[in-house]
Design a protein around this nucleic acid. Structure first.
Lengths: 346, 346
DNA sequence: CTGAAAGCGCTTACAG
DNA sequence: CTGAAAGCGCTTACAG
């Protein structure tokens, strides 16, 4: 492994500058308690020698880390890669490095990733991705994060989690409401929902929003079938197949995220169902590619890049006595995948 | 900052297991020189206590690091998020954590990211994304990486770089050849290329492949205009506009990556040009969404996830005396965005 | 303002 | 097979 002994150490700088390592350390960190002349000299020597602090030694000795941990379900998923992009951009601007882990939407994996990040002495950990409906699933993670925060660490989540941390809350309920309201006001009454796993709070919240809008229009829960599948493109395919088979006559499919909507569109295309002439399709998130699908996907913009930036910004602020919560903006983006139902008189 | 004292330490495990920290350390690392019974007991205790090794202490003490650095142009770009996904998956399986940095396709930024990663004592650094046509742009980076590797660090790149490291070479020339050959054999002769910045070796190589195929079919370089723009979706839009304006009569647009192809499709749609009836469009990469565009994008599959895994796997092997090179597989994936040119007798 | 010294948590010769 | 001890490079009380 890279022997740090191979490179310049603080003691080399100190000796060359004719001071103690304590003084050298203080000079380099810009702490006061050192005469400016000495400090300047030390800094010059350090530059000449190409000195770079050993992060491990610094962290172990109690100095601050410059690492931020980010846990995502899967970095290949556009929702998460857009969040990650926001995090990395802000982190870079602040001189921080980002460590990325996969949770795979599994509470146990998530816990072990949290532990890894804490062991790496990250100064902040960010958890992107849905929480779990059953609070017990995150109880252990909550315990770890509280201890971490009690010791001065920082944490923030994106989504509704049962964790005592700062949180950025995507407008999931409002988004569910908005997509349902949109198709309802177009005249649709035979609506089906392509949803991710029911254990996810994101799914629960988006379904709740859909239900609210439906109720407003006089549709009972049993009138609107919800098909649960994986919260992925392939999950969307499966959900669409099930909807077509079990609920023929459906005129609008509400996919609870854009990647599922992509799967839904794929299945409809394969089955020769025209969108939006026969069936309207809606998503949520507005991932970058949503505008470029054909038909362009009607969806709700959740500003993932901003979500990521926001979460990191919160985590970097001094902690408040109680966890902060911030909601993200959201707006319905109407494109070409939705229209009035067939035979509808507009 | 997060005091690691807040969490379980090796000495806690050792005490609880009734052994010395030396024995505990050896047990946990699976080193021999410990009776299996003792080792098993220690491991059990560690698990019970939720012990996670402090990476900084381990590294400082001379153990190996468990961090891998990954430099990408931009994690929000599907090409890179798919590579990152492969890297993170393999890394997780090997008990490694991945640090991600953005290069922004800028040599200077890239250099500073390399420096940061080295200072963090990563055991390996992976550079994904194109190299630069001018070797001088990476001379300093090369120097740093050589020193790093001389000291036992590992490095690998994805793409053609002027760096003395292991390398995974995406089949860029072959891919360029394949897409050109495909449209040429469909009968197209009025072909234009939507390319990224000419300073990138990836662009240079893909253009070279295109030229080769064109030459085979009797087309001179001046017969095939190459429009350079940003290697992004918006770059694709701009390139397509320029092609439509300056080269009317073009029947096939070769976009040098899928995100540019998405931009090209977007512009064609906006301008009312039908794909593939009026104009055929091809991409390269086969990002996940390529299959779900409408029309489905004809492209060359480069297996980015595997590229990422491969690069990490190489970097994790013991170094060879001279840099290794591996080429990736590639295959033309014909979908619905290509057809014979208008009026062509098949 | 400056320095000697303890200690962060771990690994690895070196002894037993 | 097991343990006591040195040491990795740094930071930070604690003395001067």
């Amino acid at each position: 492994m890279p022997r740090s002994g191979a490179s310049t150490r603080l003691i080399d700088v100190a000796e060359r500058a004719g001071v103690s390592i304590a003084t050298a350390s203080r000079s380099l960190r810009g702490q006061d308690g050192v005469s400016e002349a000495v400090a300047a000299h030390v800094r010059q020597v350090a530059t000449d020698l190409g000195y770079v602090v050993n992060v491990h030694a610094r962290t172990l000795a109690g100095g601050s880390t410059s690492i931020v941990g980010l846990i995502v379900h899967e970095i290949g998923d556009p929702y998460f890669s857009e969040i990650a992009s926001g995090v990395v951009h802000l982190a870079t601007a602040r001189g921080l490095t980002v460590q990325i882990c996969h949770s795979g939407r599994d509470p146990l994996t998530e816990l072990s990733q949290i532990r890894t990040l804490l062991a790496h002495g990250t100064q902040a950990v960010l958890i992107a991705g849905s929480g779990y409906v059953d609070p017990n699933l995150q109880a252990e993670a909550d315990r770890e994060l509280r201890a971490f925060q009690a010791a001065g660490g920082r944490a923030a989540v994106i989504g509704r989690h049962f964790l005592r941390t700062d949180a950025v809350l995507p407008a999931n309920v409002a988004a569910g409401d908005a997509i349902a309201e949109h198709v309802l006001s177009l005249g649709h009454r035979r609506i089906a929902v392509a949803a991710g796993a029911p254990m996810l709070t994101t799914v629960e919240d988006r379904v709740a929003g859909v239900r609210t809008a439906c109720a407003r229009h006089g549709l009972a829960p049993e009138d609107v079938p919800v098909v649960h599948s994986a919260f992925t493109r392939d999950g969307g395919r499966e959900a669409a197949e099930q909807i077509l088979d079990e609920h023929p006559g459906t005129t609008a499919v509400l996919a609870l995220n854009d990647v599922m909507a992509i799967g839904v569109l794929s299945t409809l295309r394969a089955r020769g169902v025209s969108v939006p002439a026969d069936v309207s399709v809606v998503g949520i998130d507005d991932i970058a590619v949503a505008a470029d699908l054909a038909p362009g996907l009607t969806t709700v913009r959740l500003h993932m890049t901003q979500l990521g930036e926001l979460a990191l910004a919160m985590a970097l602020k001094p902690p408040s006595s109680r966890p902060r919560r911030r909601s993200s903006g959201h707006e319905l983006v109407v494109r070409d995948s939705t229209a009035p139902p067939p035979g509808h008189r507009g």
